[in-house]
Structures are given as C-alpha cells and as structure tokens.
C-alpha cells in the first residue's frame, strides 16, 4: 500500500508539471476510491508538483502560460480531494491579504504570487485589483491576516503603496503585519524607502520571503 501510494503521489506530481489537468483529476479520483488520506494526497502529491512548476518558472523553463496551466491541473485535483479532508486534519494556516493597489488593473503578477503563496501553505485572501490602500488595511484587520502583499505594474501607483504602510503606522498597528511589495517598477530600494518588510522579484521568491519573515514565529 505504502509503495503504491507513493507511486500515485509521484504520478500526480508529474501530471501537474506536465499540465495534464484531466490526468490529475483522474489520479485524484483514484486516491479517493482507494481510501487514501485526502490531506496527505494534496500535501504529498499535488503540492510538490506545483512547487516543481514554480521552480521551473524561476529557472525560465516555464513561463506564465505554463505556470497557469499547472495551477489549473493542481486545482482540478484539489477540487476532488478537498471534500474528503477530515475535519481534524484541516491545518490552521497563516493568512495573507493580497491585491493590486489603486490605479492599476494589471493583475497577472498578483495572481502568480497568490498561487505560489497558496502552494506554500498560506491562506490567501485576494482583494482584487485597483484597490485603495485603506482597503488592504481593513481587510487584513478583519480577516486576522499577518501578511499584506501589495502589487503594482505602474509607476503612477507606487505612491499609493506607501500609504498602506503610513495607514498602519497612523493606526499604531504597523508591528502586527508584515508588508511585502512587488511588481514591474518596484525595486528593493523603493521597498526599503517606504518601510516595507520586503520586496520580491517574482512569485517563487515571494514565497521564500514570506516564509523567512515568519521564521520561528508561532501561528
């Protein structure tokens, strides 16, 4: 059984990397039929496949279309497995709020970061695109999130990113959140200048940064 299970996990993972949505769904149904633990199948079958896809993206073997198709394949598996997760297994995850700042409706980058943060074990609340700074703060507070991710592709909207941090400071709650920024015109220097906790160049790096920021911190 153990050997078979591991073989199945490897197949699921490979099918995600190969963007085989139907095959991932089929393998996930097989896992359910065989009574394999759904949480473990996601954790050891689907997640490693998506992590590998993220790695290929970082190595410029895969680009945005490929990464999105891998994600579709992974989600096809999650849709099938999720209803079978036992209640006591559902892990409490750290929450993150992500969105594109007011003035910008380009959200490809934001969607990629969201995807990789979810793969990396975060519970991600997507506030959408063209979102005012105050809304990031309000949602982070109401959702009990600890991480705020702000993205933009336009230099025009860079100032609005700084407002997120100044609002947190004004309300005296800056230390309750980690704030990371990213997007085309953003540089590490700009992130430091506005007082963000970090900057990442791409989606894979964002996950590493997020993990680093919470290293050793209990949920």
């Amino acid at each position: 059984m153990t050997v078979l299970k591991e073989e199945l996990y490897q197949k699921m993972s490979a099918a995600i990397v190969e963007m085989e949505e139907d095959l991932v769904a089929e393998l996930s149904r097989q896992a359910v039929r065989e009574g394999i633990d759904a949480f473990e199948a996601i954790d050891q079958g689907l997640t490693p496949g998506m992590e590998r896809a993220g790695q290929l993206f970082e190595e410029e073997e895969y680009f945005v279309p490929e990464l999105l198709m891998c994600a579709d394949a992974m989600n096809a598996g999650i849709d099938i497995l999720k209803p079978h997760i036992k209640a006591d297994e559902a892990k409490v995850k750290r929450k993150a709020v992500i969105g594109v700042i007011e003035g910008d409706t380009h959200d490809i980058g934001k969607n990629l970061v969201k995807l990789m943060l979810e793969t990396g074990g975060f519970d991600v609340i997507d506030v959408g695109r063209d979102i005012p700074a105050a809304e990031f703060v309000e949602r982070a507070k109401s959702e009990g999130a600890e991480l705020i991710c702000v993205s933009t592709l336009m230099t025009t909207t860079m100032d609005a990113m700084a407002y997120v941090i100044s609002i947190l400071k004004e309300q005296g709650i800056r230390d309750r959140f980690k704030v990371i920024v990213g997007g085309g015109p953003i540089s590490p220097g700009f992130a430091a200048k506005i007082g963000a906790d970090g900057y990442s160049r791409n989606a894979a790096e964002a996950v590493r940064l997020a993990h680093k920021l919470f290293e050793g911190k209990d949920l």
Binding site: M19, V64, P65, E66, L68, M69, D72, D107, I108, N111
Partner: peptide
C-alpha cells in the same frame, strides 16, 4: 480575460 487568454495561447 488575461489569465484565460494566456493559458489559451497554449491550449
């Protein structure tokens, strides 16, 4: 929709 569009470039 750009996310769908990018995937369909392949699919």
């Amino acid at each position: 929709d750009p996310m769908t569009f990018l995937k369909q470039l392949r699919k």
